[in-house]
Simulated scan of single mutants.
Amino acid sequence: MNRLLSPEAKESFLAAWHREKGLSGNALKMIACVFMFFDHMSQGVALNSLGFTPAYVVNSWGIPVLSGLPTASLLATIATLAGRIAFPIFCFFLVQGVLLSGDYKKQIQRLLLFAFIAEVPFDLGLFGQIFYWDHQNVLFELAMGAATIVGMKKILDGDKKRKQAYAAALFIAAAILAEVLKFDYGLAGIIAMVLFYLVCNDRRRTMVMGIFAFLFEAPLYGTVYLSLPLIYQYNGKRGRGGRWFFYIFYPAHLLALYFISLII
Rank of each mutant, 00 (worst) to 15 (best):
D123S: 12
H135R: 08
G145C: 09
V150F: 01
I149Q: 00
D134T: 15
T148K: 06
G128Y: 11
G145N: 02
D134F: 06
K153T: 13
A175N: 10
D157T: 13
A165S: 13
G145W: 01
A174L: 05
D134C: 10
I130P: 07
F171P: 05
N137V: 15
L124G: 08
Q129I: 10
F127P: 03
K154N: 14
Q136V: 12
G151D: 03
F140Q: 05
M152H: 00
F140C: 14
A173K: 10
L170E: 02
I130K: 04
L156H: 06
N137S: 14
Q129C: 09
F122S: 10
A143P: 04
L139D: 03
I155T: 10
D157H: 04
W133Y: 12
F127C: 00
R162I: 11
N137A: 07
L126I: 15
K160Y: 08
L142A: 01
G125P: 01
F171C: 06
P121H: 08
F140Y: 12
L142G: 00
L170V: 09
A174S: 10
A169K: 09
K160L: 14
T148E: 03
V150D: 02
A173W: 10
K161N: 11
P121F: 04
G145Y: 00
D134Q: 14
Q164S: 06
A174E: 10
D157R: 05
G151Q: 09
D134A: 08
A174V: 08
L124R: 12
H135Q: 15
M144F: 04
L126N: 01
D157S: 14
N137F: 07
G145F: 01
I149C: 00
G158L: 03
E141I: 02
M152Y: 04
A173T: 13
I149Y: 00
I130Y: 15
D159R: 06
G158S: 07
A169P: 03
G125M: 02
F171T: 02
V150I: 06
V150T: 05
A173M: 13
A173V: 11
I130M: 12
F171N: 10
V138P: 04
G158M: 01
F127T: 03
L156S: 08
A174M: 09
K163A: 01
V138E: 05
G151S: 04
F131W: 13
A174G: 11
L126E: 00
K163N: 09
L126Y: 00
G128I: 05
K154F: 07
K161H: 14
K161W: 09
G128S: 12
G128R: 02
E141F: 05
K161Q: 13
D159I: 02
A175M: 14
Q136C: 06
F122T: 11
A169T: 12
I155C: 10
K154E: 10
K154M: 15
A173S: 08
F171D: 07
P121Q: 05
L139S: 06
I130N: 07
F171V: 12
Q164E: 11
D123L: 15
I149E: 09
F131P: 12
K160Q: 13
L124S: 03
A175S: 11
A169C: 12
I172T: 11
E141D: 13
I172G: 06
I130D: 13
D159E: 12
K161R: 14
A174P: 09
A147Q: 05
K163F: 06
Q129P: 08
G151C: 07
K153N: 08
L139W: 11
I155G: 10
K163M: 07
I130F: 11
A146Q: 03
E141R: 04
A168L: 15
Q136M: 13
